[in-house]
Write a protein that binds this DNA or RNA. Sequence first.
DNA 1: GGCATTTCTTGATCTGCATCAAGGAACGGA
DNA 2: TCCGTTCCTTGATGCAGATCAAGAAATGCC
Lengths: 223, 223
Amino acid sequence: MLAKNSVLLQSDLFAGLDQATVEQFTATAEVRTFAADEKIIAEGQQASFVYCVLNGFVRLSKSESAGREADICVCEPGDTFGEYLLAGGDSYAYSARSVDGAEVALFAVTDLQAFAGQYPVVHRNVMRIMVRHLLGAMDCIAGDRLLTAAQRVASYLISRCSASTTTTRITFRLPYRKRILAGKLGLAPEALSRAFAALAASGVEVRGKLVLVDSVDLLRKAC
Amino acid sequence: MLAKNSVLLQSDLFAGLDQATVEQFTATAEVRTFAADEKIIAEGQQASFVYCVLNGFVRLSKSESAGREADICVCEPGDTFGEYLLAGGDSYAYSARSVDGAEVALFAVTDLQAFAGQYPVVHRNVMRIMVRHLLGAMDCIAGDRLLTAAQRVASYLISRCSASTTTTRITFRLPYRKRILAGKLGLAPEALSRAFAALAASGVEVRGKLVLVDSVDLLRKAC
DNA sequence: GGCATTTCTTGATCTGCATCAAGGAACGGA
DNA sequence: TCCGTTCCTTGATGCAGATCAAGAAATGCC
C-alpha cells in the first residue's frame, strides 16, 4: 500500500493538502485490482464512486446501439474518472475497463463530497481536473475533424516530447500497446501502423514501443 | 435592456440567486452587439472575460495550422462560454464568432471570481455547466467516431423533440441555418442535405427550417 | 413585383480510413 | 530453446463523406 499513497499524494485531486490529511481520508478508500480488460464501470450504471488510477491504465469508452465502442480517454496513474459526479449526476456517462490489469482507488461520492466540504481546495482541484478534461475533449473533437491520421499521431508524439527540447533527437517509450493508442486517437490499429510508416519521412522511427524522433521541429511541420 | 435581464436571470450561471442580486451584479457587465459572422474572441488570445449569450447564436471553433476551422459548439441564448477561466487559465482555448448577429454580455473574470466568492452557488453553477459541456463533448467524440452522418442527424432531431412525446407527429423549426447545423455535427453542408434526404425513409420531412417528424420511435430506430 | 444575393440541393469525382485477410514479429510459458 | 499465442504490419478492397461544380430554391432589397 506504499504505492497507493505515493500516487494519491501526487494526484491532482489532492493537490494543496498536507500528507496527513490525504492519508487520513484515503485510508477509508477501497482499493481494487482488475485483471486485463476487466470491466470497472458500465455506461449508464447507477453511480456511487469516484475513481483514481493507482497503477496501470484504464480505458473510458462509450458505445452505440449495435455495441461497437469508441474510446474517449485513456487514464494513467494519478488520473481520476467519474469526478464529474461531485457536481451532481447519478449515473456513469461512460464505461471503464482496465487495459493490461490496473489498480484503482474507489471514493464514495458522498464521502468525497463531505471531504470537499471540509477542505474547499478539493472543489478547486475537481474544477481544474474537469477544465483539463473539457479542453482535452475539445482538442480531440477538433483533431478528429481537421487532422489526418498521420497528423493526429504526430501531435500525440509531440505532446509526449518534453516541451523544452526542440531540435535535439528524442527517444521515449509508448506507455501502452499500440492497439490502445490507436483507440485513443480514434483510429483502427492498421491506420496507426500506416501513420507511423508515413511519419518515417518526418524522421520518426518506431521499434516496438520505442519511438525515436530525429527532430521535433521537423515533426511539428508534419502536423 | 429588458431582454438582457430576462435572459441572464434564467441563465444557469445565476441559478439559485435572487433577482436583485443578479441584477446588481449584471448591471456592471458590458453588453456588446456583433454583426453577422463577426469575431468575438480569438483562439489563444489573452483571456479576460467570461461571456453569456443574450440573443442570437455564437459558434465556438478551433482551427489548424492551415486555417481550416472546426466547430466545437453552438451557443444559444443563456449559454456561457469561457466560463472555464474561473478555474484558472489565461487564454481562450477556442475562437468565437456570432452566427447571424448576436448580443452577448461580458463579465470580467476577476469580477465574476469575486462574485462567486461571495455567493458560492455560482461556483456550483459553473461546475454544473462544465459537467454538461464535458459530457456533451464526450458524446460528440463518440458520435463522430461511431455514427454515420444520417445517424448523427437523427440523434440531433431526437434531442430536439421534447422528451415526452414518442409516437405522435412532431413539427419544429431548426434554430439556425443548415450550414451552421452541419458544422455543429461535423459535416459538410452537402452531407447534411444528403442525410436529410436519407432520413425521409424514416419519416422525416424538411421544408426550409421546418422539420416534420412522423414518429420519434421510428426515428430512434434509425440511430 | 422583380432582381440580386445567399443558401440549399443534387450530381460526379476523389480521398482517407475501415474492414477483411494473411503473413511476420514479439512475447510468455513450459 | 521451442512452441503457441498475441500483437503488429502490409496488402487489397469497399465505403462514407469531402470536395468540386452547377443548378434550384429561398431571401432580401429596391
